[in-house]
């Protein structure tokens, strides 16, 4: 257990002297020496860091740096690609997610995912949200209705769609679709939500709504969000990891990362010199 028994220190003192605090918040993921190959192509090199519980962790970096790959590794969606090999470990609740005993269905129920392009199913709005609970065994109509309502309320979509729950989800606007996808993910009651550039396909107003939602959701969920938008990372995240060419260059609290980057490459990137 890497979690120390923390000393009773004053909060402000910690903020001043520590880059971040091991004992302060619990970790949800403990990534250790993670490497990943697509065939003979190494996409992730020796990544090690902890992801904090009920915080927003942003993964930034230029395109092709492995940030999306890393995100998809956290719920093992990356294995949908052919010829994927991994080494190292990602510990989640005391167990390495690559352990053969891990049940992928349970893993992915606990670790939800929101994709870059909104991907509602070709079903009604109601059925989209109810899909997760249904496949996990909820048959009771009343219970389903409750879950759908509360999930849609949580993403602020309920008032917009409550009169048209039986219409196709594909009739919604892009931003509404993305919030529906988040609601769909919440309906499964996950613990972690992975978001892969959730606003990159949306207009600025819809993006702002999603960002606001992320800030609300972190009260209840641990969120890892990949973004190519550094301002967004700075606005919404507590911690930021900077990836480059498959390597983790720097990981720090977001405010420190942007005000005082330790690595020259991070400095170049956050100041917009490349990428």
């Amino acid at each position: 257990m890497a979690i120390k028994e923390a000393e009773p220190i004053q909060i402000d003192v910690r903020e001043q002297f520590q880059p971040y605090f091991e004992g302060d918040v619990k970790k949800v993921f403990q990534v250790e020496e993670l490497s990943l190959w697509y065939g003979s192509n190494q996409a992730l090199k020796d990544i090690s860091f902890d992801i904090k519980e009920k915080q927003v962790t942003a993964i930034i970096g230029p395109s092709g740096c492995g940030k999306s790959t890393f995100l998809k590794t956290l719920n093992r969606m990356v294995e949908l690609n052919t010829n994927v090999k991994t080494s190292g470990s990602i510990v989640y609740h005391d167990i390495d997610i690559f352990d053969p005993s891990v049940n992928l269905v349970e893993l992915r129920s606990a670790i939800g995912m929101v994709f870059q392009k909104p991907n509602p199913f070709a079903k009604s709005i109601f059925d989209n949200v109810a899909f997760g609970p249904k496949i996990h065994g909820v048959r009771n109509k009343k219970k389903l209705k409750e879950v759908v309502e509360s999930s849609l309320k949580r993403v602020g979509l309920w008032d917009e769609v409550k009169d048209r729950l039986n219409e196709s989800a594909l009739s919604l606007s892009g931003g509404q679709q993305q919030r529906l996808c988040i609601a769909r993910c919440l309906a499964v009651e996950p613990e972690v939500i992975l978001m892969d550039e959730p606003t990159s396909a949306l207009d600025p107003i819809s993006s702002a709504k999603i960002e606001h939602l992320i800030e609300e959701l972190k009260e209840l969920y641990s969120i890892v969000v990949v973004t190519h938008n550094m301002q967004q990372a700075a606005r919404i995240s507590d911690h930021t990891a900077f990836f480059l060419h498959g390597e983790l260059i720097e990981y720090n609290r977001t405010d420190r990362m942007f005000s005082n980057p330790q690595d020259q490459r991070t400095k170049d990137y956050v100041s917009g010199r490349f990428g």
Partner: peptide, 28 residues
């Protein structure tokens, strides 16, 4: 003192309980 806990719903109204047992149990 904070003890590492497998339960996540310490102070939230959420009902999620993810445990190692749950992650490795497979529905027959």
């Amino acid at each position: 003192m904070r003890l590492p806990s497998l339960k996540t719903n310490v102070d939230s109204n959420q009902s999620v309980v993810v445990t190692k047992q749950k992650l490795t149990q497979k529905s027959f």
